[in-house]
């Protein structure tokens, strides 16, 4: 903000100067106008652009715990990359990230779409209920994770007490290597439902009503109307919701740390938590950077979809 300089009113300039140079005033105007935008651009370059570049460089450097005292992180070629790709844990984390992300997206989207359609019917208190539905999404993710950790406790958690009523034995939700990833995914579905519901509901509200009137005149069934009219018309919104969901899910860290810390036996380790572990626990920032770069690469592929979707919106 402090860098934005405000030129005096143009009117004063034109009376004071004998021959105003139109090209110069235009240039000055453009410069002053960029003064509004430049600080934010600079901020984003520093906090988003620079880390991307820096991570690539870091992935070729050897960081040790003493690096931050000595300032020495010598280049070591492809060593970090070889280490990461030769490590079974990386493949495991990659696979678990994919399973977690796709599972979360399918669950969030299907339930979110169902709820959006439900709330699209007008009924008393619909608006209030829809607003309250947002709460799980607004609560800090770490808090949600901690709460679910208590609910999912094998012996004294309420979920197992409840399932016990139906004769279902105590499931070790967060302590079994076979179930933990499923449990983390289910919790993340719960967190993501409100977001999906709200955006899809917004999309449904924008659909032209006339089409539906025509469909009901033609005697189309509710399911047919939904499949042949609603879904195709909703496609741009669906793309946006899925891509945004993908990008926020694939990089997840808070929830996993709060629920399982990546365990048991690395069975809920994702690329996000692996980056964290490598860099901030092992203090091997070079290795962490490699995993981070893979994460960026995966996101970048989907960013292309996102930009396409945005362009198709007609902007």
């Amino acid at each position: 903000m402090s860098t934005t300089t405000v030129p005096g009113p143009a009117a004063i300039g034109s009376t004071a100067e004998t021959a105003p140079d139109p090209a110069r005033t235009r240039r000055r105007r453009t410069l002053a106008q960029w003064g509004f935008v430049a600080p934010a651009v600079l901020f984003m370059l520093l906090f988003f652009g620079y880390p991307l570049v820096r991570n690539i460089v870091m992935s070729f450097q050897h960081y040790t715990p003493s690096t931050f005292f000595t300032g020495k992180a010598p280049f070591n070629g492809l060593d970090n990359w070889r280490n990461v790709f030769g490590d079974d844990l990386f493949g495991k984390a990659l696979w678990q990230t994919i399973v977690f992300t796709i599972g979360s997206l399918i669950g969030q989207f299907c339930i979110g779409l169902g709820l959006a359609v439900f709330f699209n019917r007008r009924f008393p208190l619909g608006g209030v209920l829809r607003a309250l539905m947002l709460l799980p999404w607004l609560v800090p993710m770490v808090v949600s994770g901690i709460v679910w950790r208590r609910i999912l406790d094998q012996d004294t958690g309420v979920l197992n007490s409840f399932l016990g009523l139906f004769g279902i034995g105590h499931t070790p939700w967060l302590t079994s290597t076979h179930v933990a990833l499923l449990a983390v995914t289910l919790v993340n579905i719960w967190i993501g439902i409100p977001f999906n519901t709200v955006i899809l509901y917004g999309g449904l509200q924008e659909l032209p009503r006339e089409v539906y009137e025509a469909a009901s005149l033609d005697g189309a069934s509710a399911w047919r109307t939904f499949r042949s009219i609603t879904l195709p018309l909703l496609r741009p919104v669906v793309t946006v919701v899925l891509v945004l969901g993908f990008m926020s899910t694939v990089k997840i860290l808070d929830l996993v740390l709060a629920l399982t810390d990546g365990g048991p036996a690395d069975s809920t380790q994702t690329l996000g938590t692996l980056t964290y572990q490598d860099s901030f626990v092992q203090l091997d920032f070079g290795t962490g950077a490699v995993v981070g770069n893979v994460l960026v690469l995966i996101s970048a592929v989907f960013a292309v979809f996102y930009l396409r979707a945005n362009r198709n919106e007609g902007k």
Binding site: V37, F48, P51, L52, M58, S279, V296, A303, L307
Partner: peptide, 30 residues
């Protein structure tokens, strides 16, 4: 303002959503 390059900036702003926070932290720390 009808700035040349404004579209690029808006696109760039959208793209920032794809940068994972842990990657930012990784580079920002040092």
């Amino acid at each position: 303002f009808k700035l040349r390059g404004a579209r690029t900036v808006v696109f760039g702003t959208l793209i920032t959503q794809m940068v994972p926070g842990i990657v930012i932290a990784n580079a920002l720390y040092s």
